[in-house]
Amino acid sequence: MTVFTLPQAEKERLLTKQLTELTAHHRAHCPPYARMLAATGTPETFGSVADLPWLPVRLFKQHELKSIGDDEVFKVLTSSGTTGDVSRIHLDKAAAATQTRQLGATLQTVLGPQRLPMLLVDSKGILKDRRSFSARGAGVLGMATFGRSHVWALDEAGHPDLPALREFLARHGGAPFLVFGFTYLVWLHLYEVARSHGLDLSNGILIHSGGWKKLVDQAVEPAEFRRRLAGDTGLSRVHNFYGMVEQIGTIFLEGPSGGSLYCPDFADVVVRDPVTWRELPPGEPGLLEVVSTLPTSYPGHVLLTEDLGVVHGVDDGDWPGKRFSVLGRLPRAEARGCSDTYREAA
């Protein structure tokens, strides 16, 4: 089973129709959203996905935007926030079920239909630390449901747990198993330990995310990451993914040959010129917009991220549709006013 099936032209046609309907749905059920569209003179029909009205993702940090009644709220998800403000994403029962189902379907493309034994490249300690729980803990727990017989690769202090790793590999290493973790933890802890102790990870399928920011001082390029994992530990089935809590359930997954992220059938990306805001052709980097049909309980179906990205090609890779990369983050705009918050003030 796979959710990477639609050639771009067909996907464009389907998504334009479905997302236009979703726009009308949210307009009817989310008054603040309706007011934003009215104020910007947004029409009711759209000729393409790129014509749909996008919301900057940060709006979900400053405003409560939902298309369901208070009594229908089943779950409220919050994003990690470095500046103190967090997104609040409201799901009803149906949206919560759909996001789990579609995330599962996306992962099955590379994991197969069976739940695999799962190595979590993280520390059980993160579930205890309430401060870091919301971001990292929720990410790990969310992913854990797609595996079984879980083993933590790091001890509670965050150091590699070699005996646990050896035991996991002795028991499950002979058949496909799932490895999940944040990119920098996989690199700093799993890779180093596996290499220096000659662990065989060749039956592993690695799903990782979280960016390379923390690896900058280690100077590891994504291609180098793949090459060294494969060469030194045998781990050659490696899939990075990109996603955000504001479009929960939708992930953009790296294809088997690496280097590009692909969009599942129910989602897509648009790269925009940050001056004209028009869609850019493949090869030209700009701001990433992500669209998905999953957000039915809140108007997060067309979001402008603060990430920079580039589309590499269309219908020319491992799977159909657009393939793209995330290039980095847009720096936050800062005021240089007299009444700046005076962080240095003692």
Binding site: M36, H63, P274, L304, E306, A333
Partner: peptide, 20 residues
Amino acid sequence: IEAAMAVEKRVNALGLAATG
């Protein structure tokens, strides 16, 4: 006006519309 500032302005202007 740089991209980050443009996004900041969009967020704040849309916010004014969202609240009415």
